[in-house]
Design a protein around this nucleic acid. Structure first.
Length: 280
DNA sequence: AACCCGCCCAACCGCATCAAT
DNA sequence: AATTGATGCGGTTGGGCGGGT
């Protein structure tokens, strides 16, 4: 069984002292960090491996970029968050020298408030901003409509489908054509790549919301999620038991895909197309 | 000067996932 | 295929700090 970090008696918690930092840096410089679990004992630190790893990754690594975020970084984080949601490590991967923790903190303390202010002012102009949820919806809608329901994609069908899945005001935004077409071609790649691999469900499907399904379909490329969404959309409401049933059925014949490929796909897409567009 | 309050961020925790056996 | 250990990730916490009263 797993031993919770620092649960064992005698391990220190709380802020790191300069001495501890020095010991950790010296040890890693000399021996590397092959095994975090064993490291504190070998280095003579009264910390758990997890704590050492966190301290190194978030603070002591030599390539950490210190100081406030630049305007460019701020914009990148904002765009990537629209794109990826709270996938801090994926966002950090696009910002050299920044850690997921740092970006997460920056988001919660600065950007979120800033965006809330700007969305308030945007709301007064009645121009909805396309957020990540909306993008997920359009992406998934595009996939299921084009691949499983044989319905031609246009703004009306997208809107209707989205309303059936999750009737919030963001769903009224019309997807840009570039996202639709690229999403469909991406779906083709998914179905080709996933036809033979095996899928392991990792969450109790009965507890999935429509948003979970959509997010899932994006993050790991499992078309079963999209299939389920397709089936669900044929019903007037978000019927979770039906959804769970469909998920389990589909789990048996659909394969997986690497998360990073999806992240790269979306990142590249938005680099190409500028930014999540506002409907005119 | 003392107190309060909100903000910031380093660190922790629980869970998911991966890898080895 | 099941189990176990290690690592990674995202949400949350709490202590330090600065500004306001």
């Amino acid at each position: 069984m797993r031993t919770p970090c620092c649960e064992k008696m005698g391990l220190k918690k709380g802020p790191w002292t300069p001495e501890e930092d020095h010991i950790l840096i010296s040890f890693i410089q000399q021996y590397g960090h092959g095994n975090w679990r064993a490291l504190p004992k070998q280095a003579g630190l009264l910390r758990c491996g997890k704590s050492c790893r966190l301290r190194w990754i978030n603070y002591l690594r030599p390539d950490i970029k210190r100081g406030s975020f630049s305007k460019d970084e701020e914009e990148t984080i904002t765009k990537l968050h629209q794109l990826l949601g709270n996938r801090w490590s994926a966002i950090a991967a696009k910002l050299p020298g920044r850690t997921d923790n740092e970006i997460k903190n920056f988001w919660h303390t600065h950007l979120k408030k800033k965006l809330q202010r700007s969305s308030c002012s945007a709301a007064t102009n009645t121009t909805p901003i396309m957020n990540s949820d909306t993008i997920y919806k359009h992406y998934s809608n595009g996939l299921l409509l084009s691949k499983y329901a044989n319905i031609p994609m246009n703004s009306t069908t997208v809107q209707t489908m989205t309303q059936n899945i999750s009737p919030d005001h963001h769903a009224m935004v019309v997807a840009p054509a570039v996202i639709q077409s690229l999403a469909i071609s991406h779906a083709d790649q998914h179905s080709a790549a996933s036809s033979t691999a095996e899928m392991q469900p990792t969450k109790d499907h009965a507890t999935w919301s429509a948003s979970d399904v959509i997010t899932r379909s994006l993050t790991d490329g499992k078309l079963s999620a999209i299939k389920s969404l397709s089936a669900m959309a044929r019903y007037p409401t978000d019927d979770q038991s039906h959804l769970a049933h469909t998920m389990k059925e589909n789990d048996n014949d659909i394969g997986g895909k690497k998360i990073n490929e999806d992240i790269d796909f979306w990142y590249n897409l938005f680099v190409k197309s500028g930014e999540p567009s506002r409907p005119s």
